[in-house]
Structure formats: C-alpha cells, structure tokens
C-alpha cells in the first residue's frame, strides 16, 4: 500500500484571524502556523491503513514556501516515510494549480491512495482533492468518517459524512480520499519520531520541475472583514427575554 498524503501549512485554527489595516491580507504577527487539522487526520489515517495492509510507504507533500518544510517534517515524525516540499508562493496558488501539482506527483510516484484533509482551514476551498481525482480519472470519497480496505487492498469501503446522515461508497483503488473530523484522533509525534524524521528523505521541487503551468484560474483580488455584530443587551429574567424576542426582535 503506497499512500500520498498532504500536509498543508495553515494558521493555527485556534488563533484569532484579523485583517491588516490596509486589508491586503491577514495579520500574521503573533499567529502560529501548523499543519491543517484535517491533513493531520489524513496522515493518521494513512498510517493506520498501511498498518492494516501489512506494510507500505507513506509519502507526504506540502505545497508552499520553505517554512512548510516544518509540516512535512511533522508528518515524517508522525511516521510517514518520505517527503516532498513543492516550493511556491502561497499567494500565487489556486486550488487548480495545487491539484495539477499533485497529479504530476502521482505520475511520478504511482500511489494507491491520495489522502487529503477535506478542506484547508484558511482558504476553505474544498476543491483540491476533487479536482485531482477528476484530472486522474479516479474515484473519490470525500468527507470520510470510516475507511476500510477491501478486496485484498484493491478497494476501499468508505463511510462519508453527508447532509442528513452517513453514506457508504465502495471505490476501487487507486482513489482519492478526504478526511473529516470524526475519522480518527491524530497521534502526537514522539521524541524518537522527531529525531528519526530529521534523517528521512525530503526532496524540494518547484512547479517548473513538475511541468505545471502556474497561471491562476481563480484570483483573490481583495479582502474585507466580516460584518461585525455588536454585542446586544443582557436580560435578567426569562420573562424579559420572551418579551424582547416577541416585541423587539419579532423572533417568536
């Protein structure tokens, strides 16, 4: 079982995100960066699937600036075997470019599975996996809640979080899977894991090395803060609350 898994570097999901005064982007002073939490779940699941398959190899990839090497190393410390950093200026990427970079890497590595987080918590685009799957002509199972290998590792049965319930699909490999919140609890990297990760192979490539055109299909041309919500009033009793809801807010 050979799995290619992504490890995107994003802002810490628990940090407060505020625009710069000139609205050119977000303020990054005092903001920590870490691996996209959904990618952590993907790395964890890749480790478990390789175990379940009785062995294999996990290749982790991050697309971003040199700093994103840290996220690749984190995944290697969790147990992935080799890594790639595809060095690119994050502000000059869109989902389609990232998908085509992954497609090029798939051509080079021929994995059985490509696993990604269901979305990155910064851009919230939720596109890369699906684009990658279509370009490859592969089946996909997004929003995975449970993944089981079937047919001696030639297929996977995936339960997916969908509106109104949990759907089950059967895919034959190779396939693309994206991971949702309840799939697993990612492990922490152990100290020996971190030490070992330093010696694991990590190759840096550029989009040009992979022959990928970086013209943007989708371009972010500006930002604005969300509409602010002023704090309202405190009410003292249930009766006062009902009165306000009925007469002022007309919500009941």
């Amino acid at each position: 079982m050979k799995i290619l898994v992504t490890a995107k570097r994003v802002t810490d999901p628990y940090s407060k995100i505020v625009l710069k005064p000139d609205r050119s982007g977000i303020q990054t002073d005092n903001v920590e960066f870490k691996m996209n939490p959904f990618c952590e779940i993907a790395v964890e699941e890749a480790l478990r699937l390789v175990d379940a398959a009785g062995g294999g190899e996990i290749i982790v990839v991050a697309v971003g600036d040199e700093e994103a090497t840290k996220e690749v190393r984190t995944a290697l410390a969790m147990g992935a075997d080799r890594g790639y950093l595809i060095e690119a200026d994050e502000s000059k990427l869109d989902s389609d470019i990232v998908a085509r970079l992954l497609v090029a890497l798939v051509a080079k590595e021929s994995p059985d599975l490509v696993m990604l987080g269901k979305q990155a918590i910064d851009g919230d685009n939720n596109q890369v996996a699906q684009l990658t799957a279509e370009y490859l002509g592969w089946p996909q199972a997004t929003f995975a809640y449970k993944v089981e290998l079937t047919d001696g590792g030639k297929g996977a049965k995936v339960q997916r979080e969908v509106d109104g319930g949990v759907e089950t699909v059967q895919v034959s490999l190779p396939a693309v899977v994206t991971t949702d919140l309840r799939l697993n609890e990612p492990r922490y990297a152990s100290l020996p894991g971190i030490m070992k990760a330093k010696k694991k192979p990590l190759e840096t490539l550029t989009p040009a090395d992979l022959g990928v055109d970086t013209a943007l299909k989708v371009e972010t041309v500006g930002f604005e803060p969300p509409p602010s919500r002023a704090a309202g009033v405190k009410v003292k009793t249930v009766d006062e609350l009902i009165e306000k809801l009925a007469t002022e807010a007309k919500a009941i």
Binding site: Q130, L131, Y135, V162, D163, L216, V218
Partner: peptide, 23 residues
C-alpha cells in the same frame, strides 16, 4: 454548496477547464 455540490462541482470544473469560486 451542499455535500453533493461540494463533492461534485470541482470535478465538473476540472472537466470544463474552468476556475471555480466555492461557497
């Protein structure tokens, strides 16, 4: 942008060579 829309629309964009603005 339902669970089906999110699942399917990027694949359609890929088939059309289109850029997609999500959600």
């Amino acid at each position: 942008a339902t669970s089906i829309g999110k699942d399917c629309a990027p694949r359609i964009a890929a088939r059309l060579g289109a850029g997609m603005a999500a959600d």
